Simulated assay, not measured.
Amino acid sequence: MKTIYRTIWLLAMLLVVPAEGWSAGKTEITWYGQAAFKVKTPSGKVLLIDPWIDNPANKNGKKELAELGRVDLILITHGHGDHIGNAPEIAARTKAHLVAPFGLGRTLVAEGLIPKELAGYDTMGNYGGELQLLDGEVKVAFVPAIHDSDVTVPGPPVRQVPGGNPAGFLISIKDGPVIYHTGDTDLFSDMALVGRFHPVDLMLVCIGDHFTMGPRRAAEAVKLVQPKLVVPMHYGTFPFLTGTPAEFAAGLKDLGLEGRLKKMAVGETIIWGR
């Protein structure tokens, strides 16, 4: 009987071990709210995407920003403040390199927001190009986005300067998922081509409406891309971002795609293991 009880106790302990304790060899994806995500690769490399970590939707944002450790790459889709976010502070502290559309990277360097040595030709590109990064562990392809990309430069005086073309990112992780982060965009028919070169495992899609596509158009985008799993983002942070996950779920259901939805809570981490 003692052996049986010991076995049951060991199994119970396994069940309560935090998920992150079992993530070796797997990819971790954390949502900070708005369009901000952290991706930790199977080997422990860290990517931040549109890193506005202390946004209003993230009640633990200031603490998480202060405790942020290793960062290897900072990916920024376009020049708006809710996507550049905390990137200047994070880059200065961690020396992470900037991955961005070339025009945006050039502006961020010229305005003193990102150090020049962190934004070279090796980590910036444009539509259709694909970067081989971190010794081939990460590949990033630039995908069009229908939006704008002006950068607000702190003053005085506060200025608006051109930020080049907005983009989405198709991120391929070695021994991990292919992730499509749409950035801020409307639905466009060429989304159907996104997965042709790298079939998409996880799609991070804006649904907020007003400044991007809303839930129903986002559902149509999912139909075009055909990811295995889709996470809605860029909603609820401000009152005018009225799109909701419930509307998005309804749109997916109408298209026969409801089984692909994963609604993340702010601060939640999912672990992807093939």
Rank of each mutant, 00 (worst) to 15 (best):
L68H: 09
G129E: 15
G85I: 09
V153N: 07
T152P: 00
L255T: 02
A249L: 14
F240A: 02
E247I: 10
H181Y: 08
A100D: 05
G79S: 08
Y127W: 15
F169Q: 11
P157Y: 15
G21I: 07
I84T: 02
T27F: 09
G273A: 12
P56R: 08
G163C: 10
Y5L: 14
A192N: 03
A249N: 00
P115F: 15
I171N: 10
R196M: 11
A24F: 13
G208V: 07
I76E: 03
R159C: 03
R159D: 04
M203S: 05
P232D: 08
G259V: 00
H210F: 15
H181L: 11
V161C: 06
V39D: 10
M264F: 08
E258H: 13
L134E: 02
L113E: 04
M213N: 06
E20T: 10
D175Q: 13
A192M: 11
F188K: 02
L47K: 04
L10F: 14
R260K: 15
L108T: 05
M203D: 08
Q132G: 03
E89S: 04
S149N: 05
K95P: 00
D175H: 13
F211H: 10
R6T: 08
P245Q: 09
V230N: 02
Q226P: 01
L75F: 05
V109S: 07
P162E: 07
H198P: 02
E268I: 09
Q132T: 12
K45W: 04
I84H: 04
G256E: 10
R106G: 00
V109R: 01
L108K: 11
P156I: 05
K116T: 10
M213I: 02
M264I: 00
A167M: 09
K263C: 05
T182A: 13
P199L: 12
G21Y: 12
L75N: 05
K116A: 15
E268T: 07
V178A: 01
L229T: 15
G176P: 00
G236I: 04
W52Q: 09
A249R: 12
A219S: 15
T242E: 13
E89Q: 14
V143G: 01
H234K: 11
I74V: 15
P154K: 10
L261S: 03
P232I: 08
M124A: 10
Q132K: 15
V39L: 06
A221Q: 12
V143H: 01
R217M: 05
I173H: 08
V71Q: 14
R196H: 06
P245T: 12
H210C: 01
E258L: 07
L170V: 05
G25F: 13
E20N: 11
I146T: 11
L187F: 15
K62T: 00
D50R: 01
K95I: 03
I76R: 00
V39C: 00
V194H: 12
R93F: 00
D50F: 01
L261W: 12
A246Q: 14
N86F: 07
Y127N: 03
N58D: 02
L134R: 04
K262S: 03
D175L: 03
L75H: 13
G214V: 14
G163K: 03
R6G: 08
R217S: 15
D148C: 06
R274S: 03
Y235H: 11
L204G: 02
A192K: 12
K63T: 05
D54G: 06
L15V: 14
R217V: 08
G195R: 14
G112H: 03
L229S: 09
S149L: 07
H97N: 09
